[in-house]
Every structure is written in structure tokens, then in C-alpha cells.
Nucleic acid binder design. Sequence first.
DNA 1: TAAAATTAATTGTACAAACATATATATTAT
DNA 2: ATAATATATATGTTTGTACAATTAATTTTA
Lengths: 149, 149
Amino acid sequence: MKLEEEIKQQQFRDPFYKAVLNIRVTESWLSTRMNQMLKPFGISQEQYNVLRILKGQFPKPSSLLLITERMVNRMSNATRLVEKLRQGGYVTRKECPGNRRKVDILITEKGLELLEQIKPEVEATMDKMKNLNQEEADLLNTLLDKFRG
Amino acid sequence: MKLEEEIKQQQFRDPFYKAVLNIRVTESWLSTRMNQMLKPFGISQEQYNVLRILKGQFPKPSSLLLITERMVNRMSNATRLVEKLRQGGYVTRKECPGNRRKVDILITEKGLELLEQIKPEVEATMDKMKNLNQEEADLLNTLLDKFRG
DNA sequence: TAAAATTAATTGTACAAACATATATATTAT
DNA sequence: ATAATATATATGTTTGTACAATTAATTTTA
């Protein structure tokens, strides 16, 4: 759907400013769908992302710093996201033996099972949204990387 | 900067899922810079956007519904964003004479002046971020429109 | 080795996002 | 004209974002 219809605006100061709005609108469109899909599982998009980071390191534990570096939104608060996941039983936290400033965070069996349950739902959601072929997706990635300089 | 470095992840399940992450990372990158720029003016990116919508309608008043339809993030709360702007003296609210359910929202002189003050700062921020030429921006817009189906 | 600087995480605060639900007014159907 | 439905906005709640400031542990350097 064209941006013009999406936000009922016909004129943009230039194609670049239009792209700025388009990125924001598309992100919002995307997050709405991802969060809808995750809702039955009781976790948010950010919490899902943190679980995937932890699975990527598993069975090695991760520090909050490692998680922050890999998070989509650098400004959100890893401490509090992890605490929510801990309350759900999806991760454990313990003091790092070698460095008492650090916290070793580990995904639990329950956390890994949750990711397995979510997997087919993510695949289905992705398939439903997949309006770009591989070449177009590659091109979009190139342009977004270039957008950030 | 490549997404791989941005979130320290080397593998992605496919180019489409990579694009999903890339859109979210780019939006976050963008919003951080826009909000930084707006900070000295004491308004957020969404409040700025609402002011621009109101200016687009000026001197006609806008309803909350009209604002919601034009907002970048449909899920955020127009009532509360407008209330913040009213507290700052940038907009007025009054009951719509023809339909008492509606609220007529109008940008004030102070609101229009704020937009004028912000304008050169936005231009400067855009120039600093402008890593795409016009053809690339057009192509990015086409791909994002197609992404949303 | 004590002081200074750095690192890692936590806590506090204000605001925004993402809903669900409620309230008031207007429109329509009976 | 009354009841049912739809429309427009407001309110409540939980979580996330965007910082700044604090605390505690470690490393550096004087």
C-alpha cells in the first residue's frame, strides 16, 4: 500500500523525507503484526528478541551488556526485559563467577520450548507478510544499510 | 553500516527476515536522531508530527480522528499527545459546534512559530543523514510500499 | 598500594505505545 | 418516539523507550 494512502498525505518535501516517514510507518505496521502474533504467548517483540539472543549463545550464558549490544532497540532497558523473562521462568540469572559486576543470564528449558512453540507462528506470519522476493529483500537490505551511513 | 555489525549477528534465516530486523533497527536509529534534535524544543517526534498535521489543515481545525488517520503510529494515543501540546500552548481544543462528539483542534500562533524554529534544525538533521541520492530514496520508497503489500 | 578512572548493572523518572474498556453523542431501524 | 447501533473521544493499565543518576566491582596509574 502506498505511503500516500497509508497516512493520507499527498505531498512530501522530497523523496528522502518521504523515505524517513516510510521507514517509520513500515516499522509500526510490522511491529503491530509481530506483537499480535506473540500475544497468545504472553511475551512482547522485544522479549522474544532477547530470548533469541540467549538461544544464540546457549549453552554459554550472556551478560546484560552482550544482550544490549545485540538488541534491536539499544535504548530499551535490558535489566527490566530480562527481569520480566525471569518472572516467566524463561531465563535464569546468577552472578558471574569470574567478574562479580556481571550477571550470567541463561535461557531455561522452558524458554527454549517457548521458542519452539513460537517458531511455526513466526514462519506463518513471515509467509503472510512476504510481499518481496529474494532479490527485492536483498536490495532493501542494501538500501537500509546505506541509509544509516 | 551493515546490519551484521549493527546488531553483531552474522547469520539470518533468510533475506526477508533480515529485512524485517533491518527495518526495525533503521527506525530505531532514525528515531534516536530525530528525538535528539527535537529535545531542545521540548517536544517528541510524535508531537512534532501532530503539529505538522495540524499545520497541514490550518486554518481549518482537525478532529482527533483526522489526526489519528494521519499519524505515523496509529496505536499511539492522539488524545494524550494533543493534551500535551495543549499544555504547552501549541494547540487549542474546543467542542465542534456541529457535532458535540467531536473536538476541534487548532494549531496556535505559538505552535506555528515553534514549527518555524524547528524547520532549519530538521533540514540540518536531514542533510546530515542524507546518505541516499534521489533515485535510491525513490527505490527505497517503492520497496517499503511493496513490503506492506 | 591507595586514588582515580572505567566498567557492569540497577534504579528512578517521565513519557509513549498498545491495547481494552467506558462514556457521551449521533444515526438508524423498528 | 424508542431502542439498537455506530461514532468520537476519554480513561485505565501494562509494558517499553529514553534517558540520567547511582551503586558496586574492577582496572589503571601515580
